[in-house]
Structure formats: C-alpha cells, structure tokens
C-alpha cells in the first residue's frame, strides 16, 4: 500500500472483486438495465409489512446471494462493511443482524458503496482480512418518507428531482482469486457550494465529484483517456452536465467516456423519473449488475468508479442548511 500524492492510495496487492450481487425493485425492473440484475422484485414490500423491513430484507438477501454465488462459506468472510440512507443505518444493521459477520456500519449517504469498498480493500491490503463483503441498499418509499415528503401526500416532483433506486448491491473483495481488481482508492473531501434545494441533489454533489476526480488525476498523473469508463454514482442528468462543464474549466474533456449510474438506471421519458436515479443502491446495483460483468468480459478494462453523496438530513433541510457533498473514487482494472 502506497500513499500517492495528496489523497490517493495505491494498492500494490490489488484486492480482487470475486463476486457481486444485485436485487432491484419493480420500477428498476422496467428500466433499460433490468436484464443485468440478479433478481427483480414485483412489488415494493416483498411480503413485508413496512418499506423499512422490505429494505432490510433486500440487503440481507443480496448479501446471501453474493455469498452463495461466490462459493465461499459465510464463515470465511472476515468483515462486513455496509450502509444505507435510513436513520442510524437501520436497513443494513437490521438486515445483517443474523449474518454473524463482524460488521462496520458505514455512512456516506449515496457514496457509501464506494466508501465501503475503499475501507474493505484497505483491510485486505493491510492483511487484516482475506475476504470482506461490501453492501449498500436504498428504497424509494422509505427514502422519500425520511428526506422529503410522505408519499401519501402525493407531492408534485420538480424537473430537477431524482428517483431513489429501490434495491441493493453487494460485492465480495478477496486477497486472492479471479476477477477485476482494485488498484487505487481516492477518498474525497466534503465540498459544500451552498446548494439548499433538496430536490436538486445532482447540483449539490457535482462539485464534490469534480474535486475528487481532479485529485485522482493530479495524484496519479492519469488523464480521462487512461480509463475506458469513468462512472459517477447518482449525479443524474443535471449533475452529469455540470460535472462535464466543471472538468472543461480545468482542461479535461470527459464527455466521450463518462457516464452516470443515475442516468443509466431509468428511461427518463418512459418512466417519468425526471433527472434520473439516486440513492445508495443506484451505483451499487449498476456496478454489481452491469459494470462488473463488463469488467469480467473485458469489454471495459479500466474503470474509475466515483460514488457521490449528499450529506444532509431532514432536520438540516428544515433548518435551511446547505447540502455538503462528498465523492469517493476507486480505480478498477480487469
């Protein structure tokens, strides 16, 4: 493990992503990415009484699925890093309470998936673990209830709003084995540019994504063309556009190999999702479902995965606080 530049860590032993799993909700199942997910739910409750219980079940089953697909026993998993959007991360802690794996609850809002993978890969690199599991979940109904308005109120959604992805994605990292490996991690700084609109998350998070992206390029000496794909988590259409603009101010043109999971998840016109998908599960399911397979098939050889998060809660919004953004990046090679 080597510290490169200001905030990047180079992983010499290259932790391997040996398996991933993804489960998504019914709306995601109607989207263009549906075919890549392991399992699509028919309704938001999945036989549970509340949305929160459903979300816990989704993350639990996703973790179980990843473990069974990987062929290693759950006792061989040394640590679990997981998080979600609900208060005190109840979806992951309740969902994984029977997993019997040492557990770290992680919160980085929608950036949690890459944050978990960053921490997990450093655990493996340091020799503290052989296998770790990283998982995140989100649920449209429980997230709307907590962060914006109760669904029953039937509020109208502005064009800048995004649709929280219902689902969970999970990856198993290992010190050995077959699969794409993590070569660099660039944890991001908190960046707050004074955006207060909780219905415009893309704009709130784009400066953080820009900051992390520039730090990654500066630290590693790489440039956008060194990657086959640069993928952000959930900036949506507006945030994606802003990030491309911001990169141009520093002389980088990322538009030819850059995409956003929030844009990829839904069909904007058919599904009425406005500025695209969001939530912890957005990047987690798209990476676990789509990009992991692309890496395995070597259609993408070098991927820079940047998860973006808005570090606000409902109280801070009600008190008129602005929304601090964060973004963490990992470089993956197949």
């Amino acid at each position: 493990m080597t510290r490169i530049g200001k905030q990047t860590i180079g992983l010499d032993n290259r932790p391997v992503i040996i398996q991933t799993a993804s489960i998504v909700g019914p709306k995601e199942a109607q989207g263009p990415m549906a075919g890549y997910f392991d399992h699509c739910l028919e309704d938001e409750f999945w036989g549970e009484k509340t949305w929160e219980k459903a979300e816990s079940k989704i993350i639990k089953e996703t973790v179980n699925l990843a473990i069974s697909k990987s062929g290693i026993s759950s006792s061989a998993i040394d640590f679990c890093f997981a998080g979600d959007l609900l208060n005190q991360c109840i979806s992951s802690s309740f969902g994984l309470r029977d997993a019997n794996i040492p557990f770290f609850g992680v919160f980085g809002a929608c950036s949690t998936f890459v944050e978990s993978m960053t921490l997990g890969s450093i655990f493996i690199e340091s020799g503290a673990a052989n296998n770790v599991i990283c998982a995140t979940s989100s649920h449209f109904c429980s997230a709307e209830k907590q962060f914006r308005f109760p669904l029953e109120l039937g509020n109208q959604r502005p064009p800048t709003s995004q649709w929280t992805v219902t689902g969970s994605g999970c990856s198993i990292l290992s010190s050995s084995g077959e699969g794409p490996c993590i070569t660099h991690v660039t944890p991001g700084k908190i960046v707050d540019m004074g955006i207060k609109d909780a219905n415009n998350m893309g704009a709130a998070m784009a400066p953080a994504a820009f900051d992390t992206l520039m730090a990654h390029f500066e630290d590693t000496g790489r440039k956008p063309s060194d990657y086959d794909a640069i993928v952000t988590g959930d900036l949506g259409y507006i945030g994606k556009d802003i990030l491309e603009d911001l990169c141009k101010t520093k002389g980088y043109n990322i538009s030819h190999n850059y995409d956003d999971c929030g844009v990829l998840m839904f069909d904007k016109l058919e599904q009425d999702t406005h500025s695209g998908g969001s939530g912890c599960a957005c990047i987690a399911t798209i990476f676990s479902g789509y990009f992991y397979k692309q890496l395995q098939e070597r259609k993408i050889k070098k991927l820079l995965l940047i998860a973006t998060g808005a570090l606000m809660n409902s109280t801070s919004s009600q008190q008129g606080e602005s929304i601090p953004g964060i973004a963490h990046a990992i470089a993956i090679e197949s």
């Binding site: 109208q156 502005p158 064009p159 955006i195 400066p207 802003i242 101010t249």
Partner: peptide, 22 residues
Amino acid sequence: MTNPIETPSTYNKYVDKKSPNS
C-alpha cells in the same frame, strides 16, 4: 470558460441557469 465554482453565489447562479424550471 469562467469557473462556476469560484464562490457559492456564482455556483448557485450557474445551477439556476442549468436547472429546468417547473
């Protein structure tokens, strides 16, 4: 191109221009 993230106020103005209104 000017840098929109110079200050929060320039960024807010830039975002207003980028974001479609209802």
